[in-house]
Structure formats: C-alpha cells, structure tokens
Design a protein around this nucleic acid. Structure first.
Lengths: 233, 233
DNA sequence: GCGCTGTGTGACACGGAGTGTCAACTCCGA
DNA sequence: TCGGAGTTGACACTCCGTGTCACACAGCGC
C-alpha cells in the first residue's frame, strides 16, 4: 500500500485542486471527505489514489524525486555538471507552475506539520544526490562527510533560490542557481576530485635563480613557466 | 498545546518505558492506552504530558536541542571549537545511556514513519548549528551555502559516529568524533574565517635572489622567513 | 451468447489518535 | 476551615486511515 506505483505518476489536477482547497480553508479544517468531493471521487478512492491527506500535498515531490533519480542513474560525463543539471530539473518543474507552487508554499507556511514533512522530502533529494556522488567519487567512503555536506548544500541552495523566486518572479532563477551551484561545487571539487597537478602546484614554492644581468622579461617568462609546472627546478 | 514548556524537561523514566514497550510490541500494535497504563497514568494525562504517541519517542531530542541551543547561545571563543563541543554534548548524552539508545535505535529501524520524524529532528540540530554560525561568521549572508553545508556535515558526522558506536560499544566515539569534526571544520575554516596572512601566502609566489656564494643554510632561512610572510620582496 | 478473471470504484464499519469538557482531587496560603 | 489554582481522570466526540464486501466493467477463451 505504501509504495503503490500508481501514486508516482505525474501529479494530476486533483492534487492541485486539493492543495488549493487545503490552502484556502485551512489544512486541519478541511476533511478528506471534502477533498474527495472536490475531486468528484469517493473518500475510499481518495485514500486509494493518494495514500493520505498529507501525501496529496507532496505528490509533486514523489514525482520529481523519481525523475531526479532516473536522471542521475543515467547521467554520464562531468559529475558536478550532472548535479547542477539535476537541481535544475527540480527547479524548472516549480518554475513552470508558478500558481500551484505559490499556493502550495502558502499552505506550508501556515502549517508546521507540513513544513516538517517538507524537510523529509528535502532530505530525500539530498539522499539522491549523495548516493549518486557515492557512486562517482573515487574512494567515497573516506569522504562521506564531504558528500553529505555537498548534497545538503545543493538542496539548500536550490531551496533558497526557489523561495526567492516565489517572492519575486522576475529574477532569473535558473541562471542564478547555476552560478551559485558552480561556486558550491567548486569548493568541493578539489576534495572530491583532486587534480594531481593542481595539488602539487599549490603546495610548492618556486625559487628562481638567475644571472644578475638577465632582463626582467625573461625572468617573468621563466617564472611563468615554472608556475605552470612545465619546468621544475 | 504544541509548545508546552513541561515537555522540554529532562526525559523521564516514563519515556524510556514507553520506548521499550513500543520497541518490543511494535509501534503500530501498541496503543496509547497501553503506554499510559505502563506509565501508570491515564490516557488523558499521557497526551497532556507527551503531546502525542510520536513525541514520546523524541522527547530526548527536544531536551537535547534545548541544551545545545543554550550552549551555543552562551558560547564564546573559537567558534569551530564551540561547534565541536556542541556535537559532543549531544553524543555524550547518547553514550551515557546505551541501553535506552539501543532500544530506541531498534524501534526507529523498524518504522519508516519514525525514521522520517528522526530526520526532522536531525534537521533541527542542523538549524541550531547553522543559526549559531550565522551569528559568528562575518558576512554570513554571502556564505549561506557554506554554513548550511557545514551544519549538515557536522550532524552527518555525528550521526554516523553514533550509529557506529551503537554497533560496537568499545570504539572511542568521543575521540573519533572530535578528530573527524576537526577535519570537517578545517575544510570550511578558510571559507568562513579567512585568515588574511594565509590567504596572501597561498596566492603568492616567492622569488628569492641571492649571491652565488651564499651558503645553503642561509638560503633556506631566508626562504622560510619569506614564506612566513615576515619578509616581502 | 456464456462464464471467467482482474481491476477500479463506492459504501460501510471499525480501531485508534488526538481534542475538548467537566468533575474530582491535591496543594497552598489566608 | 475556606477558597483558588493547578493537575488528573473519565468520557464524548471528530476524523484519519484500513479493511471488507459488493458492484460495474473491461478483456478473453470457449
């Protein structure tokens, strides 16, 4: 009953109608029977389709999580770019249905229980990102904390961005998200995917010794080549 | 009713008895009336004291979160050390009551709903750490993602450590936790608390020019002092 | 046409969580 | 001894979520 495949499909109109009703009349004040009536189905059918009163609010997340997992499972190429694109998939879904996202957001604002449930959903995204990272990061077991931290950071940046966009629709959410995720991934990149060259260069001190009468241009040139790692003294 | 101050006190015997009962007989199978009988109170009083059947399982978290927040509010000195000590407060609480922690852990293992609730509690710890960081980090608003990621990392490392200790009691959990948290904080330290000297040194190239006949010892000494930032050429 | 099976639906009953009310009891100060 | 404040228990009530049964309707073989 819990993992009925029926409930993983693209969220239908019934869910948005239900969310709107819950938002306007209040979550506690609205009974399941009223939701069922609004969707023109019986109370029994409501429970069979959506599982519970709470689940109907989070049908989007189940659907999105499915999509995200599927994408990450199939992803190849630059792992950090895959992470960014995964986050964009989720964000774009919300961007494409502003009205529904807004009413849903208002509903969550007013109800602490639902906010907690939202946290659980957020954590599921984190786990999706983290389990992907655990697959692609070499020696993931010793870097568990970095993986967890990065996954948490991605979801956090995404959620902050979504909230900002819900407040002001005109901001270029997709672009900003991508920029911020680039910064975030950049911090973790040397830890998760250490580049041997770069690591060596950052831990080295260049000492250049020249004849006294060498010209400044040639000094700079040789220093430059030493920094690039092409010449080692 | 939700934030009854009574429920924030040190978890009593009644909660551990309740958890044991829920663990042995199964969460769903045990009614609140049975829990109330075991605690020798009426069903009404049970709800008044513990709020709900779920809350009785998480009384520890409420209590600990209160302690952690109080500690962080009053903390002064090295912020990263305060974070480590805060995590140790939480861990030590569990270490000091192994039996209760074990039965509680088994109960959570068997029940997905309770595991979700545990995630919510974990997130509350994250928020406590994050809000502390937001206070002490200069220019916290531009480093929001780093703060979130570090907070998530701390809780994650703590939870991993606790799980490991529940499996094998003989490991020195406190010490290992402290070591791992040192590594974790070390990664974020340059981002959250950039040291001007260190940053300058890492982005600088030292070029040392010497007379040909200078001794190797003096060369090394002068290079050393240059790296330390005392001498700039 | 017939019967068979599987699937989706509605109607109904039931257990149990959580809330509200009210009366009884205890403690404490006047 | 009286009265008030706080705590407890008993009871009733609403509503969620589950389980069961019956019905409708499709597809399919004969």
């Amino acid at each position: 009953m819990v993992d009925d495949p029926m409930r993983r499909q693209r969220p239908s109109d019934a869910t948005t109608v239900a969310i709107a009703l819950l938002s306007t009349r209040g979550y506690e004040a609205t009974t399941v029977e009223e939701l069922a009536d609004a969707a023109q189905i019986s109370r029994s059918t409501f429970f069979r389709r959506f599982g519970s009163k709470e689940d109907v609010v989070f049908a989007d997340h189940d659907y999105l999580l499915e999509r995200l997992s599927a994408y990450l499972d199939a992803a190849s190429g630059d792992p950090l770019e895959a992470l960014r694109h995964g986050a964009r998939i989720v964000l774009d879904h919300h961007l494409s249905r502003r009205e529904a996202s807004l009413t849903r957001h208002e509903l969550l604002q007013r109800n602490p229980t639902l906010r907690d449930r939202e946290l659980v959903s957020s954590h599921r995204y984190e786990r999706a990102f983290a389990s992907y990272l655990r697959e692609v990061v070499p020696g993931a077991s010793e870097r568990g904390w970095a993986i967890t931290a990065l996954a948490a950071g991605i979801v956090s940046v995404h959620n902050d961005m979504l909230r900002a966009w819900l407040k002001r629709a005109e901001i270029p959410a997709t672009e900003i998200l991508d920029t911020q995720l680039r910064s975030l991934c950049g911090l973790f990149s040397p830890v998760l995917f250490p580049d041997p060259n770069e690591r060596a260069a950052s831990s080295r001190v260049v000492v250049a010794v020249f004849d006294r009468d060498i010209g400044p241009g040639r000094v700079l040139a040789r220093i430059q080549s030493a920094i690039d790692g092409a010449v080692a003294f």
